[in-house]
Design a protein around this nucleic acid. Sequence first.
RNA 1: GGGCGAGUGGUGGAAUCGGUAUACACGCAGGACUUAAAAUUCUGUGAAUUCAUUUUCAUGAGGGUUCGAGUCCCUCCUCGCCCACCA
Length: 978
Amino acid sequence: MEQYKPSKIEKKWQDKWEKSGIYKDYTKSKKFYALDMFPYPSGTGLHVGHPKGYIATDVVSRYKMLKGYSVLHPMGWDAFGLPAENYAIENKVHPKEAVDKNVVVFKKQLERMGFTYDWDREVNTTDPKYYKWTQWIFLKMFEKGLAYESNEPVNWCPKCKTVLANEDLENGLCERCGTQVVQRKMRQWVLKMTDYADRLLYDLDSEDLDWEDSIVQQQKNWIGRSEGAQFDMKIAGSNEKIEVYTTRVDTSFGMTYAIVAPEHPLIEKMKDKIENYKEVEKYIIAAQNKTELERTELQKEKTGVELKGIKVINPFNNEKISLFVADYVLGHYGTGAVMAVPAHDERDFEFAKKNNLDIKQSVAPSFMVTEGKDAVRDDKKTVKRKTVVVIIKHWKKNEIFCLNWEKFGWKSFIIGGVKDDESSENAVIREVKEESGYKDIKNVKKIGGETHSSFYAEHKGENRYAETECYVVELGGSEHIAPKDEDVKNHRGEWVPGGEVCSYINLNVHEWFCDIFEKGETAFVGNGVLINSGEFTGITSEKAREEMTKWLEKNKSGKKMVNYKMRDWVFSRQRYWGEPIPIIHCEKCGAVGVPEKDLPVELPEVESYEPTGTGESPLANIKDWVNTKCPKCGGPGKRETNTMPQWAGSSWYYLRYIDNKNSKSLIDKKKEKEWMPVDLYVGGAEHATRHLLYARFWHKFLYDIGVVSTKEPCKRFIYVGLIGAEDGRKMSKRWNNVINPDDVIKEFGADSLRLYEMFMGPFTQNIAWSTEGVKGVRGFLNKIFRYLELNIENFQKRSDGRIEQLLNKTIKKVTEDIENFRFNTSISQMMIFLNFLFKTQEELKKSKSEADRKKGEFTIGQSFMISKSDFEKFIILLSPFAPHICEEIWQEKLKHKESIFKEKWPEYDKKLIKDEEIELVVQVNGKLRDRIKVSADISEDEAKKVALESEKVNNFVKDKEPKKMIFVKGKLINIVTS
RNA sequence: GGGCGAGUGGUGGAAUCGGUAUACACGCAGGACUUAAAAUUCUGUGAAUUCAUUUUCAUGAGGGUUCGAGUCCCUCCUCGCCCACCA
């Protein structure tokens, strides 16, 4: 029998596809843009983990082609950056040479996997024809004031000898070499990404973006928007002031001191007035010399020095308080100065404790109570659960309540108020019944004391107090209907059904918390109700933030303020191998952009790529290149010698694929409209806060200047789960556990590699490689070949009914699974289908031999076998995953003249998917007791009858009378006896 | 410390709506083929119990809701990723 030999077959088809350009059909009416993160062509080549994402996009691309789409599926090289440069330094070759060499290797490796890349569209970020446009974008940003020069301290990696962006750090270490980064003041180019912060944040929730939650969340956290207030604090006896930023202006009355960061300009300004300036100066110098690591990890203890002789004034109560310098306040965030409220901020609390500073409470804890998630009414459903009603009373006893709040294990609470004159258990229960529609209230526990009660609720912007008693009431035992919207409206405000309104109960427990303060245990950082806060006393934290900010505005001493954790993008590197920044410095005109007609500013040849470490890149040594004319005034000018970071080229590459040969513009408008946005983008999750953020930023800028027509670059992004080594470690040269895809392809074939990587588990999950697993999928491919060899003469006109049905189910499942990136289950479904073909074949053999034994006539007829057209459908389903073997079968075995690419993706027949007969599951008290074959549309009555007739069932029901029966149509019946 | 996610056989995993837990695959065991091995193929394979039918127990631990829970709720434990003095 002919064996399936991947090595011969695969090469043959790869060549034919490439030659015919069959997948480059861009004439269809529907488009699909599938994008991979282009690789950095390193010297080590690919390992099996790299292509996982590429395989997935290729599967989807081929699937979309069969579905009648024009599919854009390009590939290119992100080749600027340190590794190539370091290699160049070591080996004294031009980085370009190393890159070119590596690209050849990478391309060959990718080609062996049978990807449908359109290599005519290949881009390379180091190609002057490409980086001309990277520079062009920079120039446009420069023109719009989004690229600016700055002298702020930046992260400097002493080993890489370059500045790094915030995004390039890992725990304060250089992400590339692990060296401790130091802060260094340097002139550098910065992109004003913070101007786009709000749009970058809000568009994450827009319809243009369908990304995985975790990635969206990561970006949100990275952007780190916070809303608060900024206000002035006057320095007593001086005209100077500091500005502080806080998100908790509601705690202002608890302020007992203020702090400035070591780099705050006030210190220099007030030098003369600071009595202990020497001590302060010493502290500042020490702080500057601290590494990031010391500031965070090692140096957990908060340090600081008081600026003696200086007092600042709390604008809310005109109190004079001390000012400190402490390095737990960051100079670059907010205003570099904060108010300190030890009672309500853990860091301030810690610092205050250490330095014996005052602690003053201004917010009393209160508890937010909302309904449990499961109680949120769903229009279709009855909410079924046990509910606890808590009504709070006496504040001196509520310590018990607070302590036990969580320990009781109640899952949710409804707050109810009782009318003043009706404080009794019965009143509570009656009211609960009436107002909520809940029935079967039981298990009433009184947890309150005897005195007055204080029930506090914020409802639709209004604060209400009610006198209440304190009870715990357990609701449940049977189904109840969640309240309707009308009911909510009718409520007095105390009720919060459906989780639609948040309520506060002022438990007046601050005394209890005060105890803790006195014991020195904790700060209360939650929201609550203001105490000791002058005119603001008694309102909630939320309300207080609004009101107190308004107060500041009215008194012209502060305003509402928004801050971001995200900082502007430090955009210059002091290295050779990057795009030159197209700027000329002129003594007269300052920084002048290189005129568009002179782009690209090509990287000049240098003798040494070695970084200088002086804050200039090696380009600074090429005097001929550096010295030029100012484009504005014609006078002497010097070229900018810094280069762009590695992330520049990749921030817009997806656009260039669409029109990669255009020398007149970055992209042709018509073509851009035709293809954008990217429909599917697959790549590593580690790019969530860097590349994906940068690309969105640049894209939005390009949108603003009219280059692109979409607000977001890509519609759907899915991250790839990593492939670990077989030993459970990371695949790495260091552990000598790297699996090279070339070896796998050589032994098992590209189809097996593709199929295995898609089969190994959920796509986004990290999973270890298993060579045994590859053998498994190869067996599957072999079996298809074998089945065909055995049965190619036996195809019937129409398939066995069971095969037909299973095939239609398979079409449905595979189609849906590809759309949803559940490749593993679509492959297992195809395995199930093939297994069934073998099973029917066994049945066929059996009947044959039986016929032989009886010496009867035997014809295959229409049973047991599959029709040619149905088998072909199966092959088409498999072809996106294992294109080579499918093309081989299609053209060589099934004798089609045209490629399988020309086929249409099969549709399933809804009628055929329905089962006529099912196995009715019969449960007794929820336990499986029997399965009975019945017609699929069996009625409830019939099902009951059949179920009760079953002997097995009767063993369990015995003489007990069934209390009720639960029937799920087409699935099961549950007999309840107890 | 904060955010997100996960925990199911010996292993990777399936069960997407609260309805038959362990699909599919690997591994393992036994049989066939072979001088032999590999390859291939067939059968079995959660645990306990039983000759067997069977029954009981099992989805990190413990509780809860439900006729019914891997799935929902609460508490706890473990692991992974991201961020981390952001006021």
